[in-house]
């Protein structure tokens, strides 16, 4: 069979469709909601956020220095944060990893009220009412959680609530491997 126009027009539609169908099949295995973070393996941005209440010290990037830590972005108006909060409280209680919070785009006082009502799992919390630090970290919504290594680089970003399953399947092995880095 020679590669004539007739043969081309005869077989091209079926072959073309086969390629497209295969692509669509692969597409089904893909989660379109997973957005890569631009900050992976980059140093976390420098910041110094004010505290939620006048008594405490706020949160600065230096607070994260030299340890594997979690940076959790939350807000009082966010439903997903309510879902993950018990897990965060449990993590704090277990002392599994130092947990720091960024209160993102909340009205003054709301974040503090929320933490008082639902328990505070964070070692330190910074207030980001304008959401500007959020933008620097490529935050698209709340909750989001960043894993930061000893050298201060962001190694992983989780968008959406941390459920016990997510914690066990993703975070625990990741934290273990980060801690084993020298």
């Amino acid at each position: 069979m020679s590669l004539s126009t007739a043969n081309l027009t005869r077989f091209a539609p079926l072959l073309g469709f086969a390629a497209i169908a295969a692509g669509l099949g692969f597409a089904l295995t893909n989660d379109p909601r997973k957005m890569p973070s631009m900050l992976i393996d980059r140093p976390a941005p420098k910041f110094a956020l004010p505290p939620l209440d006048a008594g405490s010290s706020g949160l600065a990037s230096e607070d994260l220095n030299g340890k594997v830590a979690l940076l959790n972005v939350f807000a009082s108006w966010c439903g997903g944060c309510r879902v993950e909060h018990p897990t965060l409280v449990q993590i704090a209680k277990d002392g599994a990893v130092p947990l720091y919070g960024i209160n993102w785009k909340d009205k003054p006082g709301d974040g503090l009220k929320w933490l008082r009502a639902h328990a505070n799992p964070y070692l330190k919390v910074g207030d980001d009412p304008s959401g500007r630090l959020g933008i620097d970290m490529g935050v698209t919504g709340v909750p989001e959680t960043f894993v930061i290594d000893r050298t201060g680089r962001i190694r992983y970003r989780h968008a959406g609530p941390i459920t016990p399953d997510v914690w066990q399947e993703t975070f625990e092995p990741l934290l273990a491997s980060l801690r084993s880095e020298r």
Partner: peptide
């Protein structure tokens, strides 16, 4: 209906439906 192209934070769809329609 399969949810392959809906963007971030889109409505979660049942993967079985996508497989079936494909």
């Amino acid at each position: 209906r399969s949810g392959v192209l809906t963007s971030v934070h889109a409505f979660a769809t049942d993967p079985a439906r996508g497989v079936f329609i494909l």
